[in-house]
Amino acid sequence: MSHEGQRIFITAGGAGIGACLVRRYLAAGARVAYCDLDPGEVPDGALGLQADVTDEAQMLDVFAQVEGWMGGVDILCANAGTGGPAAPLQDMDFAEWRACLSANLDGAFLAGRWAAGHMASQGRGAIVLTSSTSGQWGVPTRSPYVAAKWGVLGLMKTWAMELGPSGVRVNAICPGAVEGPRMERVVAMEAAARGVPERDVRALYAEGNSLGTWVTAEDLADTVLFLTSSQGAMISGQAIAVDGHTERMT
C-alpha cells in the first residue's frame, strides 16, 4: 500500500507499535513526524520530537513544529498510552488512576483536536486511535486501563460522526497481547497483583483467543496502513480487533 507524499503524525512513535508505524509509513513513501517521551533514534526522513502527550503546552509546541516541517497532516495515529497500575479496586491509588486516564485519553484528545482542524478544512483525512481488547472486555485488577480504553472507543465513535461529513474517517485498533517489553511489564504487574507466576498470566493471554497466540507490532501496522489507505476508504467508526479473536480475558 502506497502512502506516497502523505503527511503522518504519530504519538508515542519512539518504541513498540508506534516505532513500527513510523518505519512502515516511511517505507510506504510518507512524510512522518512523531513525538514521544523518548523519541529514541530518529529514522532518516522522519521528524522525532520529545513531548509528554498529557501536557497541552508541550503538545501545542509539537504541533507548531510539525506544521512548520510538513505543512499539516493527512493521517493521525493517536497511539500514546500507558498500561497503568494493577490492583484490586479497593486498593487502587487515585493518583495512578488519573495518570492512566490522562495518558490514554488526554493525549488522544489533544492530538485529535489539532488534526481535526486541518483535516476538516482540507476535506479529507484519517485518524486511527489505539484502544485495546481491554476496551471491549473487563479485566480484573486493571480498572484504570480498561476505563481509559473504553473511553478511547467513545471518542472514536463520536469523532467519526462529527468529522465524517468533512471527509474524515476515524477508526480504532484494539490490540490483543502484543509481543514486546511493554506487555512483559504488564504480565509481571498482573502476576504480582494476583499472586500467581508470570508464566501463568502469559499463557492465559494466549489461551484466551481463538488462534492461541500473541500478536506483533507488525500485525498492528498492517491493519493501520490498510485503514488509512485508499483501500479502506469506506471504513469509519469501527473498532478493529487485532487479537486472534479474544474469547475471554485473563
Rank of each mutant, 00 (worst) to 15 (best):
M1H: 15
S2V: 12
Q6S: 08
A15L: 14
A19Q: 02
L21K: 04
R23P: 00
G29P: 04
A33Q: 01
L37Y: 09
G40E: 05
P43H: 08
P43W: 00
L47F: 08
E56G: 09
A64Y: 12
L76M: 05
C77H: 11
P85G: 01
P85C: 06
A86F: 15
A86E: 07
A87L: 01
D91C: 05
R98Q: 12
L101C: 10
A103Q: 00
L105D: 04
L110V: 03
A111R: 07
A111G: 08
G112D: 04
A120D: 01
S121D: 11
Q122G: 06
R124E: 04
G125D: 05
S134A: 10
G135N: 12
P140A: 13
P144D: 02
K149H: 00
G151P: 03
L153M: 08
L155Q: 01
P165R: 00
V170L: 09
A172W: 08
I173H: 04
C174S: 07
E179S: 03
P181L: 12
P181I: 11
R182F: 13
E184A: 04
A188N: 11
A193R: 03
V201S: 00
L204H: 14
Y205A: 10
A206D: 07
E207T: 09
L211P: 09
L211T: 14
G212S: 11
V215I: 14
G232Q: 05
E247A: 13
E247K: 11
T250M: 07
